[in-house]
Design a binder for these strands. Structure first.
Length: 258
DNA sequence: AAACACTCCAACCGCGACACC
DNA sequence: AGGTGTCGCGGTTGGAGTGTT
């Protein structure tokens, strides 16, 4: 006894949607909306030989008017990496922070592009410091040959020097649980590595003068303050406590040394 | 030019959550 | 409380397109 299928697979069309089918579905939904009836009966009502789930997916991922097509921007990449660090593969939540992007879109982009970038970076963590400009980048383009050599390289937690940087233990513990959860699926994403690098480079950075040290501390505290006082799930799932801007304030390098 | 390898993304699938009866 | 129907999610796959040999 398996699960009852949502429709008779032998009587519905599958595979790529034709422009005609797109037109029928789009016209129907623009006229009647998505709330008049349910998705299961929609194909019949609209005159389509498709599974209701297929119609829903086609509408949500491709046809609805507010969809954003085209390449992901650097800003969007940063947000995805940051949220993946904290949430793991909760694509719908991540996508909700990117107007016009769908969970499928974000998931595909992660699997085909960002994951490889992060793997490459983890294999070579010093890659992202641009010595000529003394700038940290929040993500990097990695030459193909380096991507190919990339290997799994989990990061130790807690990062050295976090506690000495004045980070309270309960915040460290919160982050630890997030990182551990995440590493079941994937080695620690790059962004946290950047933060660890900033923290661990404290002594080294002294040579740049006191203002650079102050900047480092500000970056650390801005990052941890984001989490202090409320669990990440409440924060992300709650009533818009994270805005586009607040995410960027946390993650939007470059940080320039004085 | 052909064969093969690889990348990317649209679409499918199964499952858990939820609403309703 | 339990059964049923539907929705929404995340993992996976098929195949078109592109690159390489």
């Amino acid at each position: 006894m398996g699960r009852t299928p949502c429709c008779d697979k032998t009587k519905v069309k599958r595979g790529q949607w034709s422009p005609e089918e797109d037109e029928i579905l789009k016209n129907y939904l623009l006229k009647h909306g998505t709330t008049a009836g349910n998705w299961i009966t929609l194909p019949h009502r609209a005159g389509l030989k498709r599974c209701g789930k297929s119609c829903r997916l086609r509408w949500l991922n491709y046809l609805r008017p507010d969809i954003k097509l085209g390449n992901f921007t650097q800003e969007e990449d940063n947000i995805i990496c940051s949220l993946y660090t904290q949430l793991g593969s909760r694509w719908s939540v991540i996508a909700s922070k990117l107007p016009g992007r769908t969970d499928n879109d974000v998931k595909n982009h992660w699997n085909t592009k960002l994951k490889k970038k992060l793997l490459a970076t983890n294999a070579n963590p010093t890659r992202n410091f641009d010595d000529s400009k003394q700038v940290f980048h929040s993500s990097s383009m990695v030459p193909k040959e380096e991507e190919e050599q990339a290997a799994y390289s989990p990061i130790q937690f807690p990062f050295p020097n976090w506690e000495s940087a004045g980070v309270s233990s309960h915040i460290l513990n919160n982050n630890k649980s997030m990182v551990q959860h995440d590493q079941k699926q994937f080695p620690l994403p790059r962004l946290s590595q950047d933060y660890s690098k900033i923290s661990t480079s404290r002594e080294e950075s002294m040579s740049f003068g006191s203002s650079s040290v102050a900047m480092h501390e500000n970056v650390d505290l801005a990052w941890f303050n984001t989490f202090e006082g409320f669990p990440i799930d409440d924060e992300i799932m709650g009533a818009g406590l994270w805005t586009h801007q607040s995410v960027l304030e946390d993650i939007d390098f470059p940080v320039t040394f004085s």
